[in-house]
């Protein structure tokens, strides 16, 4: 019975659904209305690693829910307003206010545990790919799904994140991997906050928004009381609402 239990323990799958409490960032929010699309591969992200030997276990690490929770808190603290874009109706209704749409993706996730490395540290490493597009670049496909043409992006940049946690008395492998994943998420947020404005294409986009706002403020002070025409950028787009062969979200 004991032997059977030991054998079964060696072959079982260790599953971690990443959970944590994530703090709100201490920042003055940027005066930007940001659209955010979490592609299903991101919102339901999981990582599976098959055991390489009898002594090892399969690992399934589900980060999707924690990713969405974490980035929602970060974006809410970092930008004046965040609009979650889940359907075409939101694109059409909110297009005039949205300055840009951010689409995160997880490019790679790697982990190590002490049984792999003989080092008493659990580690998680992630590489994100962030893409910033104009709302006009978001299209609707025939099946209703949203897509965008990758060539129409305003900026694309990678963010790497690293989290580690040492072994601790009475701590299971699963708890340690969860803790390392939470540290990696926090590191991703810190990296994002400190590199966002320094990314060249993002800096150009931010300058453009600042210039537009200055012009608008100047013209409104020049022509006080005159109503300004509102351009719906989604409607103005030549391909708005048309089926598109871009990247499905």
């Amino acid at each position: 019975m004991l032997c059977f239990t030991l054998l079964a323990a060696g072959c079982s799958t260790k599953q971690v659904v990443v959970e944590g409490n994530f703090p709100k960032p201490l920042l003055d929010p940027l005066p930007i209305t940001l659209g955010v699309i979490y592609p299903s591969a991101f919102a339901e992200h999981e990582f599976f690693d098959e055991a390489k030997g009898r002594a090892e276990s399969d690992w399934l690490v589900k980060t999707g829910e924690a990713q969405v929770e974490f980035w929602d808190i970060l974006f809410d603290g970092m930008f004046d307003e965040v609009v979650h874009i889940r359907d075409w109706e939101t694109v059409q209704r909110r297009a005039p206010e949205i300055d840009g749409v951010l689409i995160p993706a997880i490019g790679d996730l790697q982990y190590t545990i002490p049984t792999h490395t003989n080092v008493k540290i659990y580690e998680i490493w992630m590489r994100y790919e962030f893409r910033l597009v104009d709302i006009a670049a978001i299209h609707q496909q025939e099946d209703g799904a949203l897509s965008f043409n990758p060539d129409e992006r305003l900026a694309a940049w990678p963010i790497t994140a690293y989290g580690k946690t040492p072994t601790a008395f009475l701590q299971t492998d699963e708890e340690a991997v969860n803790l390392a994943a939470v540290v990696a998420l926090r590191d991703a947020g810190a990296h994002f906050v400190t590199s966002f404005g320094a990314t060249p294409d993002v800096a150009v986009w931010l300058d453009g928004i600042a210039r537009r706002e200055q012009d608008a403020a100047r013209s409104s002070s020049d022509q006080a009381g005159d109503p300004q025409p509102v351009v719906d950028s989604a409607e103005a787009s030549p391909t708005g609402g048309e089926p598109d062969s871009g990247e499905t979200l």
Binding site: N21, P23, P25, L26, V183, R186, D187, G189, A190
Partner: peptide, 12 residues
């Protein structure tokens, strides 16, 4: 560390 996030993370 939570009150000052993200300014006292290992990276920052």
């Amino acid at each position: 560390i939570n009150q000052f996030y993200p300014w006292f993370e290992p990276r920052t």
